[in-house]
Simulated scan of single mutants.
Amino acid sequence: EKDMLDEMTLTLSGDTMTITVNDDTIITIDGEDATLDELQVGDTVSFFLDGETVTSLSVGMPEPTQPMQAPEQN
């Protein structure tokens, strides 16, 4: 079974780069599992690279389930 390789072009601060994603790339949109097809032009993404291959890519920020704050001392 051959790995699916997809290239996508991103624009970062005016610079354009092409990244490679494969079947192992974890893609999430607003914290939910997603596919490359669900990405939209103009989405703001963050991603992690291993060499030139993207290991994970996320769009949007998952809404925190509760406000982040330091635990209170009892």
Rank of each mutant, 00 (worst) to 15 (best):
T65N: 08
D15V: 15
E72G: 12
D3M: 09
G60W: 00
F48V: 13
T20D: 07
K2C: 04
T18I: 00
I26W: 10
M4H: 15
T55D: 03
P71F: 10
T16Y: 09
I19K: 06
P64Y: 03
M8V: 11
L5W: 11
L39K: 00
I19C: 07
V54N: 00
S58Q: 13
E52S: 13
L49W: 05
E1G: 07
T20C: 12
A34E: 03
Q69P: 11
L10S: 01
D6F: 13
E7M: 15
L49C: 07
S13Q: 04
P71K: 05
Q69H: 14
S13T: 03
I26R: 05
P62S: 08
D50V: 03
E7S: 11
Q66E: 14
T35K: 08
L12Y: 10
S46G: 11
T16S: 08
G60T: 01
I19E: 06
L12T: 06
M61C: 15
Q69F: 12
E63G: 11
F48L: 10
T18L: 02
E38L: 00
E52R: 10
T53H: 01
T25L: 01
V45I: 10
V21D: 07
P71C: 11
D50I: 01
M8L: 15
A70P: 12
I29V: 09
P62E: 05
T53Q: 01
E38R: 02
D6W: 13
G14C: 14
V21L: 03
T9F: 14
L12A: 12
L57M: 06
V54F: 00
V54S: 05
S58K: 06
M17G: 04
T35E: 15
A34W: 03
T35R: 00
S13L: 08
G60D: 01
I26Q: 12
Q73C: 10
V21N: 04
P62T: 00
S58D: 06
M61E: 13
E52M: 15
M8I: 15
T65L: 13
L36F: 11
D50H: 04
G51T: 01
N74Q: 06
Q73N: 10
S56A: 13
T11I: 11
D3Q: 07
M8P: 09
G51W: 06
T20A: 12
T28E: 06
T44N: 03
D33R: 14
F47G: 11
L5F: 13
P67R: 09
P71H: 07
D15I: 15
V59Q: 03
P71L: 10
P62Y: 02
T9G: 04
M4I: 14
D37T: 04
T44R: 04
M4Y: 15
G60N: 00
G31H: 01
D30R: 12
T18E: 04
P62V: 09
A34G: 07
T28I: 05
E38Q: 05
D43M: 00
L12K: 07
T53P: 00
G42C: 02
T25Q: 01
G51S: 08
P71I: 04
G51Q: 02
S56Y: 09
S13D: 09
P62L: 01
G14A: 14
V59N: 00
T35S: 12
D15H: 12
F48G: 13
M68N: 10
M68Q: 11
T16D: 15
M8T: 09
V45M: 08
I29Y: 01
D37K: 04
T65D: 04
P62F: 03
Q40V: 05
L10K: 05
L10M: 05
L49F: 03
D30C: 13
D37W: 02
T9M: 05
M68K: 12
I29Q: 10
